[in-house]
């Protein structure tokens, strides 16, 4: 727009106050840009960022243990509370879940993305596109609900295991310590499966985008020079796909860290960070502790994004 100001002398005076006002604004590019970004600055810069900062400030307040009233004085007491074994367990549990979901999503996404990028043509390519987009954009709650149907005791998964006479295998799996439970829908395995399903498309898309850019000549040259398929994968494909994997992991990791609905519906009664935030601000009425809990995913994601940036993941988005 800046070059328009040099044309200012060419403008004929216009009739009507609106047209004249518009002309005046266009002849002052700085004013024009200022007016364009004013609403967003007011909305996000002041309302949203203001709300975020107000929340963070509250994490430095504490709650009076007898009266339950928030004490508006600077203290690190709430962060001390965050490090108690019970709360620390919540954080570790959530991070472990986010990490395993991310790793599983990367492993599952790679063949889908590679096949779609390299071998699928025409109709098949469209099928893979829709196959990833449909679950990505379907309602989040409907996807959780679908897994309630799948994992129910009388549901399809148990039915398949029974038909294959493999119920003993499923029972053996569920009797494993920590990850097992009474049934699939109240175990960590169930929670893990639902998370994996819901966030998998967020991994496939950047990995596929990274693989689309890998020229076929590269892998062919590698095998011509005597690389085995395994070497080819490890030394050519994987390094080139890695920024895509890291970009995808930002989504799978961050989304798992903040979710509080999946573990509430499919899982045992042990809390995740999101649920802890929800109960602390709701029924427990401890806003400072809830605020301190929200700082955890912000800090983890901050470190994660900093590392991802160094690996060049943002170019793959």
């Amino acid at each position: 727009m800046s070059d328009l100001s040099s044309n200012a002398a060419l403008f004929a005076p216009r009739s009507g106050p609106l047209a004249r006002a518009v002309d005046w604004i266009i002849r002052h590019p700085r004013m024009f840009v200022f007016l364009l970004v004013l609403p967003i600055t007011l909305w996000l810069g002041i309302v949203y960022i203001g709300a975020l900062i107000a929340l963070l400030i509250q994490s430095f307040f504490s709650i009076d243990e007898f009266s339950g009233v928030v004490v508006h004085e600077f203290t690190l007491k709430t962060y001390g509370e965050l490090l108690r074994p019970y709360n620390l367990d919540i954080i570790l549990r959530t991070v472990a879940m986010a990490a395993s979901v991310t790793i599983a999503a990367a492993i599952l996404a790679f063949p889908i993305a590679y096949f779609a990028a390299r071998y699928a043509k025409g109709k098949w390519k469209a099928l893979f596109y829709v196959g990833v987009m449909l679950p990505l954009w379907s309602s989040y709650l409907v996807k959780v609900y679908a897994w309630k149907l799948v994992l129910a005791k009388e549901g399809i998964l148990n039915w398949i295991f029974a038909k294959l006479h493999l119920t003993w295998l499923l029972d053996g799996f569920l009797s494993l310590p920590v990850i097992g439970g009474n049934s699939l829908s109240v175990s960590y395995i169930g929670t893990f499966l639902v998370f994996l399903y819901i966030w998998l498309p967020y991994m496939i898309i950047p990995v596929q985008a990274a693989l689309e850019r890998v020229s076929k000549d590269l892998t062919e040259a590698a095998s011509d020079l005597g690389a085995t398929p395994r070497q080819n994968f490890r030394m050519v494909l994987l390094p080139l796909a890695l920024p895509g994997v890291v970009a995808g992991s930002i989504f799978t990791f961050s989304l798992t860290l903040g979710d509080y609905i999946v573990p509430q519906i499919v899982g045992n009664s042990r809390l995740f960070i999101g649920q802890a935030v929800y109960t602390q601000q709701g029924t427990a009425g401890n806003i400072p502790l809830a605020a301190a809990f929200t700082v955890v995913p912000i800090v983890i994601m901050g470190i994660y994004l900093w590392g991802a940036r160094k690996m060049g993941a943002f170019d793959a988005l």
Partner: peptide
């Protein structure tokens, strides 16, 4: 001036977990 900040600002509400956006708006 501030162009990079604005493009970051716009992405922030979906980059941060939804629960953070939710709770900070609620307390505001």
């Amino acid at each position: 001036f501030g162009r990079e900040t604005i493009s970051l600002l716009v992405i922030l509400p979906i980059a941060l977990p939804g629960i953070i956006t939710g709770i900070s708006l609620r307390s505001a």
